[in-house]
């Protein structure tokens, strides 16, 4: 069980990073971006190419995040912005198209086979309580924790971070208060996609790279974002860890193949009991 909790925290850290971006775009732009998982994949593969150039790990990480942020802003400019007036469902349909587009572009550029960042097999450390953890997994938790602290500082301390929270909370009120919505939208895509890239890279380290990897994790991301309350980055953090833990702990009782179904079950429970999420305001989203 201790091992499953550790695994849950590792999976949870990855889900948290993906879910923060998803919840921010959902809350601020008012639509469920189904291409978010595939933006994760894009970041992971960009890092693969950069790693092939023998750049240091930190540099690879930062460039991949910047690249994915730019891709997200580009996607918004050519596709989502012109459709914005037509409502959230049209945006949702177009995001599914964008998701398929991205995934298949990735498949064409990098090929359909599984890829790895490093061919080495890592030896796990043995910790008390019979817990085994690989060096990469410690790195995953560490990087995720560091990024979460950065996001926290960004949202609390910077003007644009505050503007983002205000817009997610109440877009009309934020606009009346003189917040430049276009700038907020651009930053939302930037931050959301940079975090998606980070999540993608960490996921690639934990398992392996496949063109389908981001899409397959989208359901847990949505479950985490809704559990935490749409538009609430802190909620997404809690939601991500809860989803990660429930997915891993479920493997003690049911087949591991059903992990994605577990996050679906949690999602349905949340929708039945408290659709606004743990941290969301009652009644806002119904």
């Amino acid at each position: 069980m201790e091992q499953l909790i550790v695994n849950g925290i590792i999976t949870g850290s990855i889900i948290v990073l993906g879910a923060i971006g998803l919840t921010l775009t959902y809350g601020i732009l008012r639509f469920a971006n189904f291409a978010h998982g595939d933006l994760m994949t894009l970041g992971a593969y960009a890092a693969l190419t950069l790693a092939g150039m023998n750049l240091p790990f930190g540099v690879v990480f930062v460039i991949a995040m910047a690249f994915t942020a730019a891709a997200g802003i580009l996607l918004d400019t050519v596709l989502y912005r012109p459709l914005r007036k037509r409502g959230s469902i049209v945006l949702l349909i177009s995001s599914i198209g964008a998701a398929l587009l991205l995934r298949n572009l990735i498949l064409i550029i990098w090929g359909p086979r599984m890829r790895y960042y490093s061919p080495d097999i890592q030896i796990a450390y043995m910790l008390p309580f019979g817990i085994r953890i690989k060096p990469d997994e410690i790195l995953i938790i560490g990087i995720a924790a560091a990024l979460i602290v950065l996001v926290h500082l960004f949202l609390k301390k910077t003007r644009i971070g505050k503007a983002m929270r205000a817009t997610a909370d109440n877009a009309e009120l934020a606009q009346i208060a003189g917040i430049n919505t276009d700038r907020v939208v651009m930053w939302t895509w930037g931050i959301g996609c940079a975090l998606a890239a980070a999540a993608g890279i960490l996921l690639g380290m934990e398992v392996q790279l496949r063109p389908q990897m981001g899409w397959d994790i989208l359901l847990p991301l949505f479950a985490a974002a809704i559990l935490g309350g749409i538009g609430r980055p802190y909620g997404a953090m809690a939601g991500g860890i809860i989803i990660g833990l429930s997915q891993e702990i479920s493997t003690a009782f049911i087949s591991t193949a059903y992990k994605p179904a577990v996050s679906f079950a949690v999602l349905i429970l949340v929708l039945l009991i408290r659709p606004s999420g743990i941290f969301g305001k009652e009644g806002r989203w119904s």
Binding site: F31, A32, S88, I89, L92, L218, L219, F222, I226, P260, A261, S263, F264, L267, I268, L271, P275, W285, S286
Partner: peptide
């Protein structure tokens, strides 16, 4: 069905996957 449309979208994708 009592919630906003996107929730149905997410739930239907979940049921299809399950």
């Amino acid at each position: 069905l009592r919630l906003k449309g996107d929730y149905l979208a997410i739930a239907t994708i979940g049921i299809a996957e399950t």
